[in-house]
Each structure stands twice: as structure tokens, then as C-alpha cells.
Amino acid sequence: MKREIPLFVCVVSALAMIIAYYSPKLDWMDDMLQKWFLIIAVFAFILGAISIILVNGNRISKQVPGWGYNVVLLIGLFVTLGLGIFGGIDPKTPFFYIFTYIFTPLSATMFSLLAFFIASAAFRAFKAKTWEATLLLIAAFIVMLGRVPLGELMWSWLPVLKHYSLNNLVENWIMGCFNTAGQRAILLGASVGLISISLKILLGIERPYMGGE
């Protein structure tokens, strides 16, 4: 039964959703199942919270190296949760201040790391090792400089090329033509793979949701 029930639920819901996609009359089945998933997913947050408390609590009690971070995490969790529940989340509440003055700058900091990492990855990996890599490198230079005003200015200094539009080269040729073709190839290949894996899940050949196989 431990194997049959999940498989049954998977097959029935998958078939219901496939049928609903093609049949407007049975569209309600799709809505219903999606709503069920949403409800279950909300309850899953409790699972997450329990996991955080157990794992971090355990590390604090054992005083493993770096347990101070676990203390900070648990304090952050309970303080934010408590303030949100008891003080509300509207502007000028303590929760709002935490969101605006702690969470927002911290998130922005993490995102801005991307600029630094792009530079270090480019320095290390972008090498003209082959003919194809050289072509990619030239295209990357044109796009990088073509996407900023300084690049447009530098283009206007070039003797012959300045008569051709850099914007046209970047937007219509590199991005609109070559990039789109590559994106579509990956998208189509991935979509066929998706159909195949979905079919395998539907037939019960692949059951990752049941602990592999």
C-alpha cells in the first residue's frame, strides 16, 4: 500500500490535469488539483519550520563549531515571526522596519555579489581556446559594449563600422537571431525531455517522489 497509494494519486491527478488541459468542460479538475497543491504547500511551511528548529537546536545543544550562527538564525526566526504575528506587517510596524532596513539591504547585497562574480568568472573562463570559443568571445564583447552608452560612443569612433548601427547588430542579429536560435534549440530539446520524463512518471517507470528507484 505504501507504494500503490502514491502511484495511484500521481497517475489519477496527472491524467485529470492532462484531460482538463484539452477539455474546457473539465477545466475545473485542473483548478481543483492546483488549489489542493497550494493548500498542501502552505502546510509544508510547518515542516520547514520544524526542520529549522530541530537541526539548529540540535547543533546548539551539541555546541558544534559555528553554533553561534545557529543561535542568530533561531533568534531571527522567532523575533520576526513574533513581531509579524503580534504586531502586524503594515507600514510603521516593527516587522515593516525589519523588512525595510534589514531584509531589503541584505537581499540587495547578495544580489549585487553577482557583478563581482561575473568579473572573476569571466577572467578565469573566457579563453579563446578554439575557433568557436573565439567567435563567442567576439560576440560577447560586442553585446557587453553594445548594451552600454560607452560602447555606443566607442563604436562611433571606429572608421568604417560607425556607419552601421550597433543597436541593430546587437538587438536584431546577435540577440534576435543567433541568441534566439540557441535559446529555442535548448527549449525544444528540454521540452521533448520533459514530455518523456512526464510520461515515465505517469507510467510509474520513474518514481523520484517515492524515494528514487
Binding site: A119, F126, K127, L137, G151
Partner: peptide, 23 residues
């Protein structure tokens, strides 16, 4: 922000050129 982005892009291009010369 575009001024900063312009210089940053130029810098990355220069870094890539430098790494290729070394290579």
C-alpha cells in the same frame, strides 16, 4: 546607473583581453 555599468562592462572586457593575452 548606466555610467557605472558602462565602466564595469569595459573593465570586464579588459580583464578578458588580459587573461587571453596571458593564456
Amino acid at each position: 546607473g548606466m555610467d557605472a555599468q558602462s565602466i564595469a562592462h569595459l573593465l570586464i572586457v579588459l580583464f578578458v583581453i588580459m587573461s587571453n593575452i596571458i593564456f
